[in-house]
Simulated scan of single mutants.
Amino acid sequence: MPPEVVARLDLQLDIPWAAVFLPNGTAVVSERDSALLKAVRDGRATTIGQVPGVAPGGEGGLLGLALSPGFPSDNYLYLYFTSAQDNRIARLKLTEQPDGSLDLGAPEVVFSGIPKASTHNGGRIRFGPDGFLYVGTGDSQRREQPQDRNALGGKILRLTPEGDPAPGNPFGNAVYSLGHRNVQGLAWDSAGRLWSSEFGPDVNDELNLIEPGANYGWPAVTGAPHRDGYRDAKVVWPSTADSSPSGLEIAGSTAYLGALRGQRLWTVSLSGEEAGAPVAYFTREYGRIRDVIRTPGGGFWLLTNNKNPDFVLVLAPPG
């Protein structure tokens, strides 16, 4: 069955970038430029607070969110944001008060030094099935970084919850995979395989199957050129006008990708390590789609990025 819109939540959001759902069903949304965290409950949005230390500019600001796997006991919310010096990851306590409101603790920076720029800041963070934090970074307009195993730009990183390089990483540092231009989505399939979405330049947006230590080619190659030493993308959109894939979610055997310039939702059928031809829905009906988030009920949220103001589309669970 095609994706079905069951509700539109006009929450007066301002450039929302990511969202996570707490165990009680409340959604927490990041706003890129305002650096505000907002709570959405019962179709209404309220401001939790502003994250200190965020220095928005261009594509930088308050970006990805990830909920600690141990949230019921540790109350940690992880954030990826642009500071005055770099892109960094912090965690803070998010505590529910007796009146149901949420209180923000002071951020604790657990990882820093990710290069920043006006564009290509990456920003997606997610905890994997192994309990480690995966981080998508951009090349920050420094084309030498993605091929440098010791640089943080143009990578997928794998960290412990405390921000140390995860044990078993392929190069003995924080780097998990390299050769990326600007990673925007991370998700795992039912077999525990990691997939990522990535912006190409003016051509060759990508959906990649990520292997530890693999090199995805940027800036030497893009797409799937079958060049020795580089890993081909599983799906390639030849024109970024059709895609610019951002947030990524996987349900069952289907990947769901929000498209910014393409202003649509893409679905891709997955079969083991292979991916089928992408299929588009809602083309130019709702504008730019920044993120796709699985809801506790099995449906999806789509966050728009249209600045006029933005809203959330609620999709029914896949049939």
Rank of each mutant, 00 (worst) to 15 (best):
M1P: 10
A7P: 02
Q12A: 15
I15G: 00
A18N: 14
A19K: 01
V20E: 14
P23I: 12
G25I: 10
T26I: 14
T26L: 04
V29C: 01
L36I: 15
A39L: 09
V40Q: 05
R44W: 13
G49E: 08
G49H: 05
Q50D: 09
P52I: 03
V54S: 07
V54P: 10
E59S: 06
S68M: 07
F71V: 03
S73K: 14
T82N: 11
T82L: 00
A84I: 06
R88W: 02
I89K: 11
K93V: 12
L94P: 03
T95W: 00
G100Q: 08
L102V: 07
L102C: 12
G105I: 10
A106S: 12
E108H: 06
E108Y: 05
V110Y: 01
F111N: 10
S112E: 15
G113W: 13
S118Q: 15
H120F: 05
N121W: 00
N121A: 04
R124P: 11
I125Q: 04
F127A: 05
D130I: 05
V135C: 02
G138N: 00
Q141N: 13
R142H: 10
R143S: 08
R149S: 08
G154V: 08
K155G: 00
P161H: 02
G168Y: 04
F171T: 11
Y176L: 10
G179K: 09
R181H: 05
Q184M: 06
G185Y: 01
A191W: 09
W195T: 13
F199P: 00
G200E: 12
D202V: 15
V203T: 14
D205P: 10
E206A: 14
L209T: 12
P212L: 01
A214C: 02
A214G: 04
Y216Q: 08
G217M: 10
P219T: 11
A220I: 13
V221A: 07
T222C: 06
G223I: 05
R231I: 08
D232V: 14
V236L: 09
S239R: 14
S243Y: 02
G247N: 02
L248C: 01
A251I: 13
G252I: 01
G252F: 01
L257I: 11
A259L: 04
L265Y: 00
G272K: 07
E273N: 13
Y286N: 10
G287Y: 01
D291F: 00
D291L: 02
V292S: 02
I293Y: 07
R294A: 14
G297F: 11
G299V: 07
G299I: 09
F300N: 06
F300Q: 05
W301N: 06
L302A: 01
T304M: 00
V312K: 00
V314W: 05
P318Y: 12
